[in-house]
Amino acid sequence: MIELAGINRIFTVGDTKVHALADISLDVKTGEYISIMGPSGSGKSTLLNTIGLLDQPDSGKYLLEDREVTKLNDVEQAQIRRERIGFVFQFFHLVPRLTAAENVELPLVLSGITPTERRKRVGDILGVLGLSERAHHRPDQLSGGQRQRVAIARATVTNPAVLLADEPTGNLDRSSGNDVVSILEELNHQGLTLIMVTHDPELGRRASRRIRMEDGRITRDSLHENA
């Protein structure tokens, strides 16, 4: 489903060039559960952002569902982000003035889906994630775990092809972090491709495929070790 070939991403910090992604090649199949680990600055987040079309590689080829997406313009990339990609962030990034339901509704609003359809889908997903009673609370009235669950609801309400999670538990205590991970794993069981960046080795080990990155390169990929 995701095919990266020879992806390079170079940042210029001051007058030194940092190779955030150095010649990355990666194939991801539908329904995989991948964890990406590695020290800070190893390029994990940049890889995730590149897959999520938030960041543009300087060179290389990226096929998402057999479409070469690096060559698309801003509007087309935005449409793919809207319809095929879900993001979950470490700091949740909920809009503070909107209620939980409104936050979940946001990607549907951006897609121009009718209010009745939106309400139904938001209601369904909040019910699945056990947030129905919190639907009309604002983010500051929710616990960290609840906030992240709202964020997951928002990321999955559009039925994306892939869910990208950047340190989803990094800002949570262990028990709510476990809650969040089990929700993500449950979604993965239902067929959603899950790619998760994490610092937590214990969390990383739960993934069926584990990737380790250092200095912008993939140094280990459990898929190839087992093969």
Binding site: D74, A78, R81, H93, V95, L110
Partner: peptide, 16 residues
């Protein structure tokens, strides 16, 4: 800023 970044991540093009 964060809200705008979020909107972009959720699939809002620059024009939107």
């Amino acid at each position: 800023t964060a809200e705008i970044g979020l909107l972009k991540a959720l699939g809002a093009p620059a024009s939107q």
